[in-house]
Design a protein around this nucleic acid. Structure first.
Lengths: 146, 146
DNA sequence: ATGGGGCTTCCAACCATGGGAAGGTCAAGC
DNA sequence: GCTTGACCTTCCCATGGTTGGAAGCCCCAT
């Protein structure tokens, strides 16, 4: 099977297959006399594993570990689970960071009239240091008159 | 003010300040006779704006737009709001993607015993095509007996 | 004036991926 | 057999945002 067919069958682009080979994530493919790489169904199977792992957000380094465990018949499932759980924790941190961003930004957007006038609490919020300061929607008692 | 002091005052590293200057995000800094860059409080103000925008996940390209609006006294707040909202939408997409990953992965982790034995539904899940297949936690009504 | 820290520029690396150029190979049709 | 077009090969470059380092000059305090 040519690299293009392996790519189509696995969902990993030919570019990336070569890259994975070059970086040692996958073993060097067999070659035909012509120099073309030759892939078996087993190879495609492995590539699909990689593809799927990438889709779940694993880094290539993590996939290297996963592949090792995958191939190791005497692995302990606990090790796989630990790896997966640690990745989940990482994903959750990233989600939390993004949610912090949306929350802050949503507050700012809510405070902005969004009309033809130049006054804009969003820009003001970007100037200030991010504490709740003046962008609170609640009327600031006492600050209105002062 | 030297670049190091501007960096400390703004929260943007000296490296990044030079990079932003090089890429045109910020104007070229004044130079002293020695060749050292010289920064004013206004410059620091701008750098803090950038820093804060980065913290909220805006790309440098988006910050370029934001800075333009920031400097434009006759901007329409609607435009800022539109930009911010579009960024929020983007953030939400990224969050949703990460949540899909955690959900799938959490299901797999939940199905894995995580003991000394090699059998591991996580690895099996990475092999298969990601449909709910066998790893569903909900009892599949009708599928149980059949 | 000397030492150490700060500044300058330039170059490289990260991670995963895509684009493209220059040239060899395969398969199909004539 | 020969042409054609799709496919393969290697190699280099770009992305984005940031950090690291090297080589050399400058500034301030002692």
């Amino acid at each position: 099977m040519n690299i293009g067919q392996a790519a189509k069958a696995s969902g990993v682009s030919a570019k990336m297959i070569r890259y994975y080979e070059q970086t040692g994530l996958i073993p060097k493919a067999d070659r035909r006399q012509s120099g073309y790489r030759d892939y078996s169904d087993t190879d495609v199977h492995m590539l699909r594993f990689i593809r799927r792992s990438r889709d779940l957000g694993f880094s290539v380094a993590e996939i290297q570990e996963l592949l090792g465990l995958w191939r190791d018949e005497s692995r302990e499932s606990a090790e796989v689970k630990r790896l997966a759980q640690s990745h989940i924790d990482d994903l959750k941190k990233r989600i939390a960071a993004l949610e912090d961003m949306t929350n802050t930004l949503t507050k700012l957007v809510g405070a902005c009239h969004g009309d033809h006038r130049p006054h804009c609490p969003i820009l003001e919020g970007l100037e200030s240091d991010g504490a709740d300061e003046d962008l609170s929607i609640r009327p600031r008692r006492g600050a209105v008159a002062g």
